[in-house]
Design a protein around this nucleic acid. Structure first.
Length: 182
DNA sequence: GCGACAG
DNA sequence: ATCTTGTCGC
């Protein structure tokens, strides 16, 4: 079982972010896993396949939400920064847990947040997107500031902890992976 | 050396 | 991330 080929799947879901949050396109891609998971080096593992999924997209998004960090990273260059730069699009990191930084507890009210500080610098926000659930870690990735990033993430949330586009991308990937595995 | 550590 | 059923709480 040591030479088993492991496949990696990625998914992108495009939404409108106007009056309604409406799904307008989906894209997936897969390929061989080529890099291990090492904290701080996530983009080396995920970016290649993620970029494959983005290439199939017909729409060209104004802003992209990533399942990972933006500048809240040891070298200020998380997945959202890295892929946002390559795609030259506004990008926001929306991670489910902390990689670096310290923060104070967040009030239990949707929209409340506390600054995520790392090496004497604000690198993101720990944002409450749903009551009675752990907050998420929002950080600018590319061509965006923290204030706007927070506003966009809150607009993209539909009552769930995870912003809807990210949540749907996750569900999409699991669906496709399961179909492929059968 | 010890602990922390996106997915 | 993944293993993995039911179950406790809003």
């Amino acid at each position: 079982m040591t030479n088993m080929v492991i496949f990696f799947f990625a998914g992108v879901v495009v939404y409108t972010l106007g009056k309604q949050l409406e799904k307008i396109e989906e894209s997936t891609a897969f390929g061989r896993e080529r890099f291990p998971y090492i904290p701080g080096l996530l983009s080396f593992r995920e970016a290649p396949i993620l970029l494959k999924a983005f290439k199939k997209l017909k729409n060209d998004p104004d802003v992209i939400l990533f399942d990972g960090q933006g500048i809240a990273h040891p070298r200020h260059f998380g997945l959202a920064s890295h892929v946002g730069l390559i795609l030259d699009r506004r990008a926001i990191g929306c991670a489910k847990s902390r990689l670096v930084g310290e923060f104070r507890s967040v009030r239990n009210v949707v929209g409340a947040y506390s600054k995520l500080c790392y090496k004497n610098e604000v690198v993101g926000a720990v944002l409450r997107t749903k009551i009675n659930t752990k907050p998420i870690f929002v950080s600018p990735g590319h061509k965006i500031n923290l204030t706007l990033a927070i506003r966009i993430v809150l607009k993209a949330c539909n009552g769930y902890r995870i912003p809807e586009p990210v949540r749907q991308a996750h569900l999409l990937v699991n669906k496709v992976r399961k179909e492929y595995t059968q």
